[in-house]
């Protein structure tokens, strides 16, 4: 059980995120969804301890240190000649001395293998595509084995095949290491498939939190995303959201 207590977050005098408490079960994956600019990235970096706010992350009542919380920021271009394997090994930088323990290398190679990345092990990070870099950086965070993993748009650069592969790995590690995760996501269908619960963030406040099927409803999408969706129910019992057209504005609502 993991509890996160966030105070009010402000940038200057502008409030950007309201105070809130989140409770995550062991190995639970929580999706955070919401329109652009509602504070998803701010929330994650605050929990990661990178902001100025005092955020308490408690595991069984005991606070977690910054190095026990893993954080994958939004995808950015890595310009480094370090190899993929070196990059993953760096995930456990605290365990590295003048020599790299041999067991660590074996473990890192096994993880690359499991994530379908072993063919890239020798390649330079800067020579990889954006999607490949994103998968390597996810592997690095998984290799780190944090007590809580925060992922900001972990599948933004990935094709369908690798979206599924990464989701399967996240699910596997969340379960095997009882590691809760919080993922900010834009793709709602993907969020429904990956997450145990979904929290909706709108204008810096959590509106609702619950099972994907309870959350991803037409009224919710109409109100907060201003789209008229078609929500298909599939044989997998997962909602598939097809954005259909922009929602008609209620009279008196300012456009934009």
């Amino acid at each position: 059980m993991l509890d996160i207590h966030l105070p009010d977050l402000r940038r200057g005098s502008t409030p950007i995120l309201g105070a809130c408490c989140l409770r995550l079960g062991a190995g639970e994956i929580l999706g955070v969804i919401g329109p652009n600019g509602t504070g998803k990235s701010t929330l994650l970096s605050a929990i990661a301890g990178l902001g100025t706010a005092r955020v308490a992350v408690l595991a069984g009542g005991k606070p977690l240190g910054r190095s026990e919380i893993g954080f994958l920021p939004q995808a950015y271009a890595v310009r480094s000649a370090l190899s993929v394997l070196d990059c993953v090994i760096l995930g456990r930088r605290e365990a590295l001395g003048l020599r790299i323990p041999a067991g660590l290398v074996v473990e890192a190679v096994a993880l690359l293998e499991a994530m379908g990345l072993s063919a890239l092990a020798d390649r330079s990070m800067q020579d990889l595509s954006g999607g490949q870099q994103q998968r390597v950086l996810i592997a690095q965070r998984l290799f780190r084995r944090p007590r809580l993993l925060l992922l900001d748009e972990p599948t933004s650069a990935l094709d369908l095949h690798h979206q599924l592969e990464v989701m399967a790995q996240l699910r596997l590690h969340a379960g095997a290491e009882a590691m809760p995760m919080i993922a900010a996501l834009h793709d709602l269908t993907l969020a429904a498939r990956l997450c145990d619960r979904i929290a909706v963030l709108s204008a810096g406040r959590f509106i609702r939190i619950g099972r994907p099927a309870e959350i991803l409803t037409s009224p919710m999408l109409r109100e907060h995303w201003q789209v008229e969706p078609e929500i298909l129910s599939t044989a997998l019992n997962l909602p598939v959201i097809v954005p259909h057209r922009l929602a008609a504005m209620a009279p008196g609502t300012p456009a934009g």
Binding site: A48, V78, S80, L90, R93, L98, R144
Partner: peptide, 20 residues
Amino acid sequence: DLWALTALRLGEANAASLGL
């Protein structure tokens, strides 16, 4: 700081998220 400096080659965001 040898490893910390190596981690910084992957970008500031990456180094910070490794607890540096």
